[in-house]
């Protein structure tokens, strides 16, 4: 039965901080090898959703399944297949950049990891800083090191919280290219952002507003739904979706008033 389950299944996930609903009944599935952009304004619930998927927080309602296994129950299994990189990743003060990768690889009993680690550091421009301590890195370098740590253990699902914020435009373009490569190799990537490089085209968008999914689909589907023309930019998409939502809310209010 487990083979038939989607790689990631989020069903009816809600999260409340006191009386504030950070997530309300969020549901979607993700198959293997898909790059999903989770977009929304600040405070829309993107980070909370990613944390719920990674098992960092326990949803108030609903459940998250990875390969048919419940995140809340199979903590150890989840740790081998899901990695979340937060927007400001912390590091060990006592280990160098290289030792962070070594520690991860050895803890996961990876063999022949050194070549892969060097390749990653080279790719993300950290090879000359391999013996430096990450607390002395810039924010962008820290994010890149965190990504290397995540990619080294080759998770099935990679969750990235605001990956493009700390990066310069060139690094952001490079990262996007790399993410496409990992997606083609079968990794499912879910990234939250409110900005994407101009040439970035995710397979699917999930748009969150006030903790609810207010739009979801491939670029073509969204273009059709919201009447957008040409290549979709994130700005256009967000504006169109939020405008549509406001119009719908106003209509509902008018109907209520009429009634």
């Amino acid at each position: 039965m487990a083979e038939e389950s989607p790689l990631l299944s989020v069903s009816g996930v809600s999260y409340r901080y006191g009386s504030f609903n950070a997530l309300t009944e969020v549901s979607f599935d993700a198959p293997e090898g898909e790059l999903i952009a989770l977009v929304g304004r600040n405070g829309a619930g993107k980070s909370t959703l990613l944390k719920s998927i990674a098992g960092w927080t326990r949803p108030t309602d609903g459940e998250v399944l990875i390969m048919g296994k419940k995140v809340a129950r199979e903590e150890r299994f989840i740790r081998q297949h899901v990695v979340l990189v937060p927007d400001t990743p912390p590091f060990y003060d006592e280990l160098t950049a290289w030792e962070h990768l070594q520690f991860n690889a050895q803890a996961h009993r990876k063999k022949d990891w050194e070549e892969h680690a060097e390749e990653l550091l080279e790719k993300y421009g950290l090879i000359n800083n391999r013996d430096a301590f990450p607390f002395a890195f810039s924010r962008g370098m820290r994010y890149k090191l965190a990504l290397c740590m995540a990619l080294l253990i080759e998770p099935k699902i990679l969750l990235l919280d605001e990956p493009l914020g700390p990066l310069d435009p060139v690094s952001a373009d490079d990262l996007w290219r790399e993410l496409n490569g990992h997606r083609d190799e079968g990794m499912t990537i879910l990234l939250s952002s409110h900005q994407l490089p101009p040439d970035a085209h995710p397979d699917r968008y999930i748009i969150l507003e006030e903790g609810e999914i207010i739009g979801e689909g491939t670029p073509d589907e969204l273009r059709e739904t919201f009447g957008l023309q040409g290549a979709i930019t994130l700005d256009d998409l967000l504006r169109a979706v939020i405008r549509a939502r406001r119009e719908a809310e106003e209509e509902a209010l008018e109907e209520e008033a009429d009634a």
Partner: peptide, 29 residues
């Protein structure tokens, strides 16, 4: 952090696997 920043890293993390990695990493720290 400030003290560590001025020093070269002492010793290296040994090449071991599994639980031994956790122990050696803690000792190194």
């Amino acid at each position: 952090q400030m003290r560590q920043a001025g020093r070269k890293p002492l010793l290296r993390l040994p090449k071991v696997q599994g639980m031994a990695t956790f122990v050696t990493r803690a000792i190194l720290s």
